[in-house]
Amino acid sequence: MTVDHRQRHLEGIRAVISIAIFPLQYMVNLPFVAVDWADEVLTFRSNLIDENRTLRKKQQLLEVKLQKLAFFEQENRRLRSMLQSAKRDWEKVLIAELMAVDFDPFKRLVQLNKGSNEGVFDGHPILDANGIVGQVIHVGPLSSTAMLITDPSHATPVHVNRNGLRAIAMGTGEPNRLEIPHIPNSTDIQVGDLLVTSGLGLRFPLGYPVARISEIKLVPSEAYAQVYAEPTAHLERTQEVLLVWPESSTEGNR
């Protein structure tokens, strides 16, 4: 147990056992997949047409935004090369599905249906459409276990998007709440501020939304304010997540 906690030698054993367990997890997951499938197959035609229409509209909007983005990306690249700063792009993505299996109720873990066969690695950042979801903690060949940012033992390095104030967002174990410790009472931070990843831990890519400040309690007698935030990603509802890879292997820049 000590070896597992302190070092990472036993990951191999864990990976082997996870292969044995995968069929079981697959089996437990199956009814949920079936219900989803039936839901998809048995939709009304009118619903599909409606959905198609809204999606098309959305796509058009996104494409317009994308045109701008391409320009910004080019400009950004140029500026960075002028500054000669090391650059890490996180571009390659893979969609993984969450398997409907439960873990310890006092932790916030999820099971993904992609493993090292697909190139998932330890510490792999996971996103959804709205922000950071968590990171992979155990990898097996067929599946992997990921920790959500709300797990009590997880901390995400962030900064406030508005003014660049650096902070750490700690999980609380509650489904929709992060705690931001060590924020002095006099700090410029407001309810509604967006927290984005600062990339400081070199685990998460820079600049993805993490959470929005939801509550600030100022206690004059305490040195620090009590600051809470709500994750922007739909942690409890999400079905599919994105695994992101660095664009080219930039291990040397770490």
Binding site: I21, D104, K107
Partner: peptide, 17 residues
């Protein structure tokens, strides 16, 4: 117990012991 450890994502050996 060892399998349970992997399922729960807990430290290896906790449930085994």
């Amino acid at each position: 117990g060892l399998m349970l450890d992997v399922i729960h994502g807990s430290i290896l050996g906790q449930y085994a012991l």
